[in-house]
Design a protein around this nucleic acid. Structure first.
Length: 563
RNA sequence: UGGGGCGUCGCCAAGCGGUAAGGCACUGGGUUUUGAUCCCAGCAUUCGUAGGUUCGAAUCCUGCCGCCCCAGCCA
């Protein structure tokens, strides 16, 4: 393989499409769709589907991808979710152009196809209760029993279905069912429900126009066909539904038959990617909302400081297969570090301040120093640092004694202040309790942009002026769960048992360099030696607030443990 | 014990009968005013397993084992 060759995304679905293109299937068209149900926020698993569907549309000549809300269950859905989903898809960098659809756009047509099935004797109105229906369905190993209403005439079914639509029956009193095979080994084919009655709900798109709502298995294939979808991509759990998808299209008068292809959903370690569980985290207050930076939602990742490019890279890296998977967080983290390392301007922030007085530095002087915003990208310009007699360094960057592996400040030792001078620790000041409260250091005026002669400094540490620095609140996030598969543990009652109590640490004492005064949400910074951070508005008392996106890789952490 | 899927390095994943890509992680070494980045090197005689077909099998066939999904008037 050539060095410069970029491996284009390849997966079994694209291979199928390649073959279809070669054979002229679908007239050479490639048309996909992303069909979320607006009953929650999009999460990283949806991002995989979005990147797959929109990515295919982008990469094939004339390819298109629709955004379609699968809104057939008004009970759980609402406009807030519709709006959030649209915003998230756009933010991820994808465009459905003029093709924004709702399954509810097709309610009239769907109804017409249901009537057609009834007329053909392929659907019937069933009066069994939900409970009875379940009993009649049989089990995984035993065939079901035909409903007593299965042999109703088309005329009677037509009449009953019309009255269902007219609102004559209560919720649950009757349903419309496909008439397929009650003994089918595939349970989905045992006369599945096509329509149910739902009174008193206001659908976010159709209001109170309907009191009967079509089921997914009936709606989805028809919606796909109506939109001219060529490849209908969905997750593995729908594999068993494919015969039904095909049955619907084979038995109604429609001239398009998309191909359903299933792929495995994403499982991300140390989190949950199930809308039900994410909803529970939000509704029970375990997190602050759908956009809590610990959530694997698109909104949460955005607020955490993830970029669309990083998420897209991630989706490309994890690939698309039919194998069950459990993706390590490390892959997602590597993607965001890669993006931010190249694009985030650098800054200095001290999270756990320890005051340092530069005893030989003049009082009252504010020295302006220029520092590059990026060590490798001069185009990113520079910012002004302000050095004063009193500064802060991080408590972890000083030790009274340490072996040679410790490359920071030690008593009597020298270290460089990043982008500034070399200093030497001369004296440690303690409070009554013996805790170190201040360091007296001397700086070497000859070391600005130059190494000291004849000596070697141990390392480089970051700092912020005590008087010129800005107070800030920094939120340090960790994994939301302390178990790699919180929802796969059958020994606990609920995945909630694995919530990490330390997933959020709020640091209110941080001080950041003055150039960050105008930092705004949506920006990304690398706080040197600390990690990547993104502004998150202001605290109640007006302090800057930063969310930690991800730490820097830290090989010292490992070394330190072995010392 | 019905039906549908899946099993290639710690994780993800190429491979599609010609003799195991790549990424993440990990381990060494180099550069470095971020213990970051970057660079260089190492990291599956083996593809769930047992047979078979073949000059040749991760790729084809058969058996076995393991894991996932399905009994909503959810999607």
């Amino acid at each position: 393989m050539n060095d410069n060759e970029i491996t284009a995304p390849t997966n079994f679905i694209r291979q199928i499409i390649d073959r279809d293109q070669a054979s002229g299937k679908h007239g050479g068209r490639v048309h996909t769709r992303f069909p979320p149900e607006p009953n929650g926020f999009l999460h990283i698993g949806h991002a995989k589907s979005i990147c797959l569907n929109f990515g295919i549309a982008r990469d094939y000549p004339g390819g298109m991808c629709n955004l379609r809300f699968d809104d057939t269950n008004p009970h759980k859905e609402n406009q807030e979710y519709v709006d959030a989903i649209k915003a998230d898809v756009r933010w991820l960098g994808f465009d459905w152009e003029q093709r924004l659809f709702y399954a509810s756009d097709y309610f009239e047509q769907l109804h017409g196809f249901a009537v057609e099935l009834i007329e053909k004797g392929l659907a019937y109105v069933c009066d069994l209760s939900a409970e009875e229906t379940r009993r009649y369905r049989g089990t995984l190993t035993e065939p079901g029993m035909p409903s007593p209403y299965r042999e109703r005439s088309p005329a009677e079914n037509l009449d009953l279905f019309a009255r269902m639509k007219a609102g004559e029956f209560e919720d649950g009193a009757r349903v419309l069912r496909a008439r397929i095979d009650m003994a089918a080994p595939n349970i989905n084919l045992r006369d599945p429900t096509l329509y149910r009655i739902r009174h008193g709900v206001i659908h976010h798109q159709t209001g109170e126009q309907w009191c009967i709502y079509p089921m997914y298995d009936f709606t989805h294939p028809i919606s796909d066909a109506l939109e001219g979808i060529t490849h209908s991509l969905c997750t593995l759990e729908f594999e068993d539904h494919r015969p039904l998808y095909d049955w619907v299209l084979d038995n109604i008068s429609i001239d398009c038959h998309p191909q359903q292809i299933e792929f495995s959903r994403l499982n991300l370690q140390y989190t949950v990617v199930s809308k039900r569980k994410l909803t529970q985290l939000v509704s029970e207050g375990h997190v602050d909302g759908w956009d809590d930076p610990r959530m694997p939602t698109i909104a949460g990742l955005r607020r955490r400081g993830y970029t669309p490019a990083a998420i897209r890279t991630f989706c490309e890296r994890i690939g698309v297969t039919k194998a069950d998977n459990s993706v390590e967080m490390g892959i997602l983290e590597a993607c965001i570090r890669e993006d931010l390392d190249a694009h985030a301007p650098r800054a200095m922030a001290v999270l756990d301040p320890l005051k340092v007085i530069l005893v030989n530095y003049p009082e009252g002087v504010v020295e302006e120093l220029q520092a590059p915003c990026h060590p490798k990208d001069e185009g990113m310009g520079s910012r002004t640092l302000k050095l004063t007699r009193e500064i802060y360094i991080d408590r972890a960057d000083f030790r009274e004694e340490a072996n040679k592996k410790y490359k920071r400040l030690v008593s009597g030792g020298e270290v460089r202040l990043r982008n500034a001078y070399v200093i030497r620790a001369d004296q440690v000041i303690r409070d009554a309790g013996g805790e170190i409260v201040e360091l007296r250091c001397s700086y070497d005026p000859a070391t600005l942009g130059a190494n000291p002669e004849g000596r070697k400094v141990r390392g480089v540490i970051h700092w912020v002026s005590a008087s010129e620095g800005l107070p800030a609140e920094v939120r340090l996030y960790d994994r939301l769960f302390n178990n790699p598969t919180p929802d796969g543990d059958r020994t606990v009652a609920s995945f909630l048992a694995h919530i990490n109590p330390d997933s959020l640490r709020v640091v209110r004492t941080a001080v950041v360099e003055p150039s960050l005064a105008g930092a705004t949400p949506g920006e990304h910074y690398q706080f040197e030696r600390e990690g990547y951070f993104t502004p998150d508005g202001r605290s109640d008392d007006g302090r800057l607030v930063f969310n930690r996106t991800v730490t820097l890789r830290d090989s010292w952490a490992r070394i330190e443990q072995t010392v």
